[in-house]
Structures are given as structure tokens and as C-alpha cells.
Amino acid sequence: MSEFTSGSLTAKNIHLSFGTNHVLRGIDLHVEKGTTASVIGPSGSGKSTLLRVMNRLIEPDQGDILLDGQSVLKDNPDELRRRIGMVFQQFNLFPHKTVAENVSLALRKIRGMSKDQARNEALEQLDLVGLKHKADARPATLSGGQQQRVAIARALAMRPEVMFFDEATSALDPELVKGVLALMTDLAKGGMTMVVVTHEMGFSRNVSDVVTFMDAGVVVESGPPEQLFNSPRTERLQGFLSDVL
């Protein structure tokens, strides 16, 4: 899989408050087309919120978001989200639908495909994540790792230009993490533009092109993985790394 029509993504000076709680305090993030940016940092630093602002599940108070160099804040947010796939920590598969229906729902209702066409497309996507044989199972009968791979297939089926991963492996049992990370790695190598919020330092160091360390709503350090992991400049990143590594 290497023919993604991916694009670059830029967030400029993003601010967001929930009431008096200033969650994002001027975030800048740029992800070059076909590259992977990982975002690391302690819990509550605003990483997951940043993802939701960048696909406008939450509207920012201030700042701009550019997809392929074009500001998308004035567009219909539903249109924007069709161009950005998102994978969640808790998978969020639709429990009342089969695996194949989970993947084909948006193809039918948004892309306007016929039932058969959407199912075939869904089966193809499921095949890519190795779960074609589970097409007619309910999500609840799958392991966490399988559910997350279905969620990835569901997002990929929309042929997004960018993929967001929000702690995609944090809810998985340790032995299931590897399969999902391998799939994410393949996507990255296949040229997908990805923003990966993660606690998996191995993935961040080995797979991503740029690592961004966030704390308390600001970007503390950002750069190539070797630089951040081998010679962190700030005390906060040094402290964080010594806690997690």
C-alpha cells in the first residue's frame, strides 16, 4: 500500500480554552506530506485535544489549520473530517453493526456507493488489515487488537489524506500492541501523512520523522527523533524521558 493521496497538515498558533482552563496555548505543528509526526508528552498535556482541534471535532478559539497549504477553518467541518481519518484509543467501533458494516457505513452514506460496492470495498480494506475473515462478526467478539485494526480499516476506507492516531495502542493488552504498531508502521512507510499521539516511545523514535513533545498545552520541543531522544535540550523533556524510558 503506497498510493496514498496524502497531503501536508499545518496547525498555526492554536489556542483553546474550556472555561477558565487554557488547554492549548499557541500550538504550532507542521507535518510534511507523506511523513509521520508523533506527539508525546504527559497525560493532560493537550495532545489528544490537539488532534480533535485539527480535525475540528473541537473548534479552536484562535489559530489556523491548513491542509495542503489551504486553510480549512472556513470549510464545512464534515468535509474536512472526510479527508482526515481518525483512530481512537477505545476503538469506538459501532457495536450494533458487523465488522464489514462498520467499514462500509460511511462509504454508503457519504460516498454514495451501492450496498454491494461498499461491501466489496470494505472487504478489500479488511483484507489489508488481515481481518477479511471476520467481516460478518460483531466487534464485541473480536480481540482488542483486531478491533483496532478494524477501526484503522474503517478510517482508511474513506481514502483520507491524513491519518490521526489517538493513543491507538494504549487500551490494548501488551501482546496485542505489536500487530497494531506494525500496521501503523506500514502505513507510515507507504507514504501516509500521519499524526500519532502515543506513549509508545519505540514507535515514536523508530518510525516518526518528527517528534513533538508537549506539556501543559505548549510545544516544549520538536525535532527529528534522534535529537529529541538522544539529546533533549529542555529539563521538562529530560524529566519526561527519564520517567517513561
Binding site: 500500500m1 489489508l128 488489515v129 488481515g130 481481518l131 464485541a140 467478539t141 473480536l142 480481540s143 487488537g145 483486531q146 485494526r149 501482546e175 496485542l176 505489536k178 500487530g179 504498531l181 506494525a182 500496521l183 508502521t185 506500514d186 502505513l187 512507510k189 509508545e200 519505540g202 514507535f203 523514535r205 523508530n206 518510525v207
Partner: peptide, 22 residues
């Protein structure tokens, strides 16, 4: 109680390619 569920081990792990050994 729900319908009887059958969980399976995550047999087919790395599928698309080899992936990172992280």
C-alpha cells in the same frame, strides 16, 4: 448476559508487511 462471546487470540498480527519491531 449477552449472546455467548468467543474471543480469539490475535493470531494474524503483522499482516500488511513486516512492520517495526518496537
Amino acid at each position: 448476559v449477552g449472546r455467548p462471546e468467543k474471543k480469539e487470540p490475535d493470531d494474524a498480527a503483522a499482516v500488511v508487511g513486516k512492520g517495526a519491531q518496537s
